[in-house]
């Protein structure tokens, strides 16, 4: 599908930036506010989808040289690997832990291992959604 619509392209560029920011915010706030790995991942993925729709897929795949299949695989791997880490400390599989730290700019911040796990989930979601849409739209 070749779409040549200047307004759409321009608006989508701005929109994608906002969506990206929002997605990352959702991902990070997930622990205490609405959001989390799934939602963050989905929002980020939808930003990519918007890019694909507004531009043609060749342009985008040249601009973003990522293999989304590998990203989704990486996501599963991170989710799994982060879950096995506690086993090396004598804890059951998938034990999560958290703690509060004083960081320079952010002040008292909670850091939780679950964030790593969530990042894996988010990467999987991004990879899969983009991969599905991309595969279909590229096939003609």
């Amino acid at each position: 599908m070749k779409i040549n619509d200047v307004i759409l392209k321009t608006v989508s560029k701005a929109a994608v930036l906002i969506i990206f920011t929002f997605g990352i915010y959702l991902f990070l706030s997930g622990h205490n506010e609405p959001g989390g790995g799934f939602i963050g991942g989905l929002v980020l993925a939808s930003a990519f989808v918007l890019l694909f729709l507004s531009h043609d897929s060749e342009t985008i795949s040249d601009a973003i040289p990522l293999d989304f299949k590998k990203i989704s695989a990486l996501g599963v791997l991170i989710a799994f690997a982060s879950s096995t880490v506690p086993m090396f400390f004598g804890q059951p599989f998938m034990s999560q832990s958290f703690g509060y730290f004083d960081l320079p700019i952010f002040g008292k911040t909670e850091l939780a291992t679950v964030t790593v796990f969530e990042a894996g989930v988010a990467l999987t979601v991004i990879g899969v959604v983009v991969n599905i849409i991309f595969s279909i739209s590229e096939d003609e």
Binding site: H31, P34, G36, A79, F98, V114, V121
Partner: peptide, 22 residues
């Protein structure tokens, strides 16, 4: 350590489900 209960269930209490789901 999470105030979002739904997220805590997904990521921690029932993390195994979530992993298999992904």
């Amino acid at each position: 350590g999470g105030k979002n209960i739904v997220n805590a269930i997904l990521g921690d209490f029932r993390g195994f489900d979530t992993m298999l789901e992904s």
